[in-house]
Structures are given as structure tokens and as C-alpha cells.
């Protein structure tokens, strides 16, 4: 089936919040979280925090570890830094998964 390069953007995507240890990829998009999904914090504020921790379009991400209960939180490597976050917040980070 012919696929042109423009279709790559419609290729498989993975929400970081649904990823598992070993999954890796490049961040395609950091979304402003939907209203009501962020508890007591303003969605725009959560987006800024993700950005300030290095979750920014183009960054290389790899999931390293997950917690015992429900696999939450997750520990990820963002470029050269290790960060822990909950899956709920990680749902707003969209990856282009890399074949392992």
C-alpha cells in the first residue's frame, strides 16, 4: 500500500500515560489537558509544568520503571534527565513510538 511521507504524521501514536517500561519515542505533541482532568490545577498550568520539566516537542522519551500498584507513577527518561510523574499527567504527552 503506497504511503507518502505526509502520512507519517498520521502514523501510530502513543500516549505516554499508556506506555510501559521499555517503550520509547519522540514527543510529537504536548497537549493542554482537557478541562476537569487536572484536579485542583489549571490545565494551562499543567502544560507549562510539563514543558518546564523538559516534556517538549522533539524530546526523546523512554519509560524506565513503573510503580507497583496499577503501574503508577512512571519513571521516564526525557533526553538526559530522569523524571517521575503520574500516568494521569502523562496522558497529555503524545509520542511517536520507536520500534524497539
Amino acid at each position: 500500500m503506497p504511503h507518502d511521507s505526509a502520512a507519517a504524521a498520521d502514523g501510530p501514536v502513543l500516549r505516554l500515560g499508556e506506555a510501559h517500561p521499555g517503550d520509547r519515542g519522540v514527543i510529537l505533541e504536548v497537549r493542554t489537558p482537557p478541562a476537569g482532568s487536572t484536579g485542583g490545577v489549571d490545565p494551562a498550568e499543567l502544560e507549562l509544568r510539563l514543558l518546564e520539566f523538559g516534556f517538549v516537542e522533539g524530546a526523546q522519551v523512554e519509560v524506565l520503571h513503573e510503580g507497583l500498584l496499577g503501574g503508577d507513577p512512571i519513571a521516564v527518561k526525557v533526553d538526559d534527565m530522569r523524571v517521575a510523574l503520574r500516568r494521569g499527567e502523562a496522558m497529555n504527552v503524545i509520542l511517536a513510538p520507536e520500534a524497539v
Partner: peptide, 12 residues
Amino acid sequence: GGSEPFMMQLPD
């Protein structure tokens, strides 16, 4: 109600 997000650096 929900609690605030948890995001933390894991230093070397």
C-alpha cells in the same frame, strides 16, 4: 476532589 499533579526529578 482530585489532588495536584506529581512531577519530580530523579537525580543521578
